[in-house]
């Protein structure tokens, strides 16, 4: 039996960029098994949980990075160390690293950057050489560029206004890169679609959808794929390039 429900304790909760917070939570993390999975957090006064992607985890802690963009996440931003959160752990399929080849490209856009971190660590541990591209709108939104560099991997940043890194979109960086074997990406849907069209390589794309339950029961986040109907929360959020119907 899976025990999805875990009462996590906030260890730290700090602002790392505009409207962007990094929260470290402690508790049992055995249900988190694959990079690209998410956790679903219950908040006092809100009926539905907040699905947030896992940025990193070890045996006793999980790190998430979230944007305060609505009433729920704004409440999360006010939580102090010691606060407890009823959380469903290890949801979604996550990224399959067996298909990556030796030099996969990792592309994160905005709130889609965090899951790339655990994925990069996993790929490195498998002896692969990932290259990462992080896309943001402007300098004040940039986060985790140094953390990726600290993993010892080639890291590119693009900003729409050119305030940091390459001016333009992540696809402008992709256009200059060669030799990558596969791609993994997470970010806003227009970015996913642009990447899908910008490269011949095969890859995996992590999607967002408004969810009810987050664990496959309500059919609130269904999408059509070439492999049949899928639930973004349970059969996804990661879909293979070949199955996507835009």
């Amino acid at each position: 039996m899976r025990e999805l429900k875990e009462l996590l304790t906030v260890v730290s909760n700090e602002k790392i960029a505009v409207n962007t917070y990094k929260m470290v939570l402690s508790g049992c993390t055995k249900e988190i098994t694959v990079p690209g999975q998410f956790i679903n957090i219950a908040l006092d006064g809100f009926y539905l949980r907040r699905p947030i992607s896992v940025c990193d985890w070890d045996e006793n802690t999980v790190t998430i990075i979230y944007k305060a963009v609505g009433n729920g996440t704004e409440l999360m931003a006010t939580l102090k160390a010691g606060a407890q959160l009823d959380t469903l752990m290890g949801l979604g399929n996550g990224f399959d690293t067996s298909k990556s080849g030796n030099a996969p490209l990792l592309i994160g856009g905005g709130a889609g950057v965090p899951p790339m971190y655990a994925l990069a660590k996993k790929l490195i541990s498998e002896g692969k050489k990932p290259v990462v591209i992080l896309g943001f709108n402007t300098e004040s939104e940039v986060f985790f560029a140094e953390e990726f560099k600290a993993l010892g991997i080639e890291t590119y940043v693009s900003t729409a206004d050119g305030s940091v890194g390459t001016k333009g979109f992540v696809t402008d960086v992709i256009a200059k890169l060669e030799g990558y074997t596969y791609f993994y990406t997470c970010g806003p849907e227009p970015m996913l679609k642009a990447i899908y069209n910008a490269t011949e390589a095969s890859g995996q794309l992590s999607f967002e959808e408004r969810m009810g339950c987050g664990f496959g029961a309500c059919m609130g986040c269904s999408c059509k794929t070439k492999y049949g109907n899928k639930r973004i929360c349970k059969d996804g959020p990661v879909l293979e390039k070949e199955e996507i119907i835009w």
Partner: peptide, 14 residues
């Protein structure tokens, strides 16, 4: 079509 879900005070719409 999605979105199929909306949150409400003490409830939800599907």
């Amino acid at each position: 079509p999605t979105p199929r879900i909306a949150e409400c005070p003490a409830g939800m719409i599907n």
